[in-house]
Design a binder for these strands. Structure first.
Length: 488
RNA sequence: GCUCCCUUCGUCUAGCGGUUAGGACGCGGCCCUCUCAAGGCUGAAACACGAGUUCGAUUCUCGUAGGGAGCGCCA
């Protein structure tokens, strides 16, 4: 069966030659989340086989390539920790090489100059579509012998007119194209720069790429590239075309789908490990396993676990995974990222408890570092006012006396620690014949300004004695005002 | 329009001829509980449709439908 043959072919390739993959983004924007998934699979495959991973910047389109984009790509790759062994290479530094090979094709008779104008080409395509044909260049300049004055010609590759191309793809199986469906594509622009189809082929060969792993939007392109490879006498790499990642609505991922720039996830308080773990499960699986360490991913990743159908991006699941990672990551490793989030919130953490203690107390109720920071601000800064709803519900006359008793006992508590705080509250509750919760919640509101926090003893231990006493005093006066108002 | 690819719960997926079709996210319920979480248990929820092949199809083949991609002097 074809499948078996293809799988065998892949295994043999991996064994006999050193595996080398590449990620080749074009610097026309930020590093896309879909691009990261592609890079991840390339990286995993290389690492799994003890091979090399190359980063190549495809910047032949000088109109749209920017240094800013290059920086964003490098920063994004670094953030998620997909390290490369070679590169980054830049295609703009290799123009001489492309020109030389284009000349070679010209001499061989596998390419020719084309003088057609854009208008002429448009008209031709319109006609073809009207006639129900697959639009494509009809090769009208193949026979031309005389240059056209004033036109700097492009170079087109001469695609075989008859026959077919067969591509063995590691995820698609065998895909066949009739050559009649493939037109003569432009390989060199009028200005002497190469086009994508030409530069990829040359670079992949020059850089000895063994496995081309890329998005399946390139599947159709592969047929044309394979012809160029043959004409140049290069060896064909193995191919694996990955399914696309769609937005939540099933449409292609784009800016309107929120965060598509990886670096935005960093800003939102996601951990790179969580992002990678989420992405690896989009189009790849290993039985029922959901959580993979980086080492596990490298050890378990294989192309035969990659499926063929497109998947949708689910922010909910990413968020869940991120929380799992926040829960599992040693507190100390979270400190740096958390500090960055406090900085964004303008929170000064100098006057407060150790951040690792804050993390330990808050991590099970925060899905992102951003949430973790935002929900713990009161540990470092006083709040402007108590949430009205929480105050109304819990700061009542009945808790005035017990709360005052607690305040008094707490003032002398030694040491200021969870156990003592807990037993103090319990003692006062017992004394007033109240359940712990009857006092815990009002205290929480007094001390945090809201109704949600870690356990009250933990929370108060973190906030510190001085702040707690002052806030309880403030709450007591809120109660007093309220009682007075009610009594009037 | 033409060519190619894809199709299991709402979503991500397991399954590789015979299963009560499994797991995860999300959603509902219960437990735990000083709040909120986390955690545990639990419930609802899927093989797009139609023909074949076969003793037997979610699984293999072919159609149909739906979705995606490509068809540039973009990558």
């Amino acid at each position: 069966m074809d499948w078996v043959r293809i799988a065998f072919h892949f295994n043999e390739l991996s064994k006999t030659m050193k595996v080398k993959t590449r990620f080749a983004p074009s610097p026309t924007g930020f590093l896309h989340i879909g691009g990261v998934r592609t890079a991840l699979f390339c990286w995993l495959f290389a690492r799994h086989h003890g091979g090399q991973f190359v980063l190549r910047i495809e910047d032949t389109d000088r109109e749209r390539s920017t240094q800013e984009s290059i920086d964003a790509i490098l920063e994004g790759m670094t953030w998620v920790g997909l390290d490369w062994d070679e590169g980054p290479y830049y295609q703009t530094e290799r123009f001489d090489r492309y020109r030389a090979l284009a000349d070679q094709l010209l001499e061989q008779g596998d390419a020719y100059h084309c003088y057609c104008s854009p208008d002429e080409l448009d008209a031709m395509r319109a006609e073809q579509v009207a006639a129900g044909q697959n639009p494509g260049y009809d090769g009208r300049c193949r026979q031309r012998t005389e240059p056209v004055a004033g036109v700097s010609p492009v170079i087109r590759f001469k695609t075989p007119a008859a026959g077919e191309v067969v591509i063995d793809d590691a995820v698609r199986g065998q895909v066949v194209y009739a050559n009649s469906e493939i037109d003569d594509l432009v390989i060199m622009r009028g200005d002497g720069t190469p086009t994508y189809h030409f530069s990829v082929v040359v670079d992949d060969a020059d850089m000895a790429i063994t496995h081309v792993i890329r998005g399946d939007d390139h599947l159709n392109n592969t047929a044309r590239q394979v012809h160029i490879i043959a004409a140049l006498g290069f060896e064909r790499p193995a191919y694996a075309h990955l399914p696309m990642i769609l937005g939540e609505d099933g449409a292609r991922l784009s800016k309107r789908h929120g965060a598509v720039n990886v670096l935005e996830y960093r800003e939102q308080g996601f951990l790179p490990e969580a992002v990678l773990n989420y992405l690896v499960r989009l189009g790849w699986s290993h039985g029922d396993q959901e959580i993979f360490t980086r080492e596990e991913m490298v050890r378990l990743f294989e192309l035969d676990g990659v499926n063929a159908s497109a998947s949708r991006f689910s922010p909910e699941k990413l968020t869940w995974l991120n929380q799992q990672y926040i829960l599992q990551t040693p507190d100390a490793e979270l400190v740096e990222g958390l500090l960055e989030q406090y900085r964004r919130l303008d929170v000064d953490t100098a006057d407060g408890p150790q951040l690792s203690a804050v993390i330990a107390a808050f991590h099970e109720r925060a899905a992102t570092l951003r949430e973790l920071a935002a929900s713990s601000v009161y540990v470092f800064h006083d709040f402007a006012e108590i949430e009205p709803k929480a105050a109304k519900k819990h700061l009542r006359g009945v808790v005035r006396q017990p709360m005052a008793d607690i305040r008094e006992a707490l003032a002398d508590l030694q040491p200021w620690a969870e156990e003592g705080i807990q037993s103090t509250i319990q003692a006062v509750a017992d004394q007033h014949e109240l359940g712990f919760g009857k006092l815990g919640q009002p205290l929480r509101v007094a001390v945090t300004g809201g109704g949600v926090s870690p356990p009250i003893d933990v929370t108060m231990a973190l906030i510190g004695r001085d702040r707690c006493l002052a806030r309880i005093d403030a709450a007591l006066s809120v109660i007093d005002k309220r009682v007075a108002a009610a009594g009037r």
